[in-house]
């Protein structure tokens, strides 16, 4: 058996998995498009004619974007700190991955204990008399974004960290010795080199935030759900599979519309960098 064939045998298990996945995806899209054997956009028309669904789509994309933004804002400095840490980096890595040992439900519910009307923050604030009535810290976008950032931040950190670890410290020192102030060094050396990791992190966090179910369910308001939660409810409560499929397809297409260009950009950047040769 030729070597290439033998090696491609290794792909068989993942190939089977992919086949099932692609089959499911085709069936999903199919069931939202084909009604009684003919192509029919009824479900899509129904979705886009309802202003509450359009608003929900907008909110989903907005919350995903905000979540990604804040994850990046918190994740980059953390990743940089870990990458340049002189001591035992493994302890820091463990701390970053640690939340993954706890289920998303528990972690999201933890925020209820902190943010809820009778939660920790409101308890302290009303007890000390800073506010008379509890602040609305959850069951709104703020709660959802906070919860999602908490859940998804490790993905951002790990994605950026893996790239930062490849950037020798001497490159930053070289910039400094050439007169580059910290902001200049960051903008012209560190950020361009870290960009592939940043884009990977953005992709991961954005995708997971658009499809989030549990966190918006626990921390979001009743009136303003996210698309993922809505799909979950259509399937689990109303058994309306074609509608759920149509919503899922809309979610998929909007997510791809953002992610694909980012992926292409990352591909291009990575190629440019590896072309630059050894660091």
């Amino acid at each position: 058996m030729p070597r290439s064939l033998r090696i491609s045998l290794l792909l068989l298990p993942s190939g089977l998995l992919m086949a099932v996945f692609v089959y499911g995806l085709i069936r999903l899209i199919g069931s939202s498009l084909i009604v009684d054997g003919t192509l029919d956009f009824t479900y899509y028309e129904a979705i886009f004619s309802r202003s509450d669904y359009v608003a929900m789509l907008g909110r989903t994309l907005r919350i995903a974007a905000m979540t990604t933004f804040f994850s990046l804002l918190l994740g980059f400095p953390t990743a940089y700190y870990v990458a340049r840490y002189r001591g035992n980096r493994n302890i820091l890595l463990l701390l970053i991955i640690f939340p993954w040992l706890v289920s998303i439900v528990v972690r999201s519910y933890g925020w209820v204990v902190i943010l809820g009307p009778r939660g920790l923050i409101n308890g302290v604030l009303t007890w000390t008399g800073v506010v008379e009535r509890p602040l609305k810290l959850m069951y709104n976008d703020f709660g959802v974004i906070l919860g999602l950032v908490h859940v998804l931040l490790p993905f951002m950190i790990i994605a950026i960290l893996s790239v930062l670890m490849q950037i020798p410290r001497t490159l930053e020192e070289a910039s400094m010795s050439l007169g580059g102030r910290p902001a200049h060094s960051f903008r012209t050396v560190l950020l361009p080199l870290a960009m592939p990791g940043v884009l990977t992190g953005i992709t991961l966090v954005y995708l997971m935030a658009t499809g989030a179910i549990v966190t918006p369910l626990l921390l979001g308001g009743l009136g303003d759900t996210m698309l993922g939660t809505e799909i979950f409810q259509e399937v689990m409560h109303f058994f309306d599979y074609p509608k759920a499929a149509a919503l899922a397809t809309v979610l998929l297409v909007t997510a791809l519309a953002v992610v694909l260009p980012i992926q292409l950009l990352e591909r291009w950047l990575s190629a440019r960098l590896s072309d630059g040769g050894a660091l």
Partner: peptide, 29 residues
């Protein structure tokens, strides 16, 4: 700080900027 000194440094591992071409590496300073 290093960036306020008028001192150049050639590193042992050279530390050329991999994302820049020769011209932009030299123009960096």
């Amino acid at each position: 700080p290093a960036y306020d000194r008028d001192i150049g440094l050639v590193f042992q591992n050279l530390a050329l900027f991999p994302h820049l071409n020769v011209y932009d590496n030299v123009a960096f300073g």
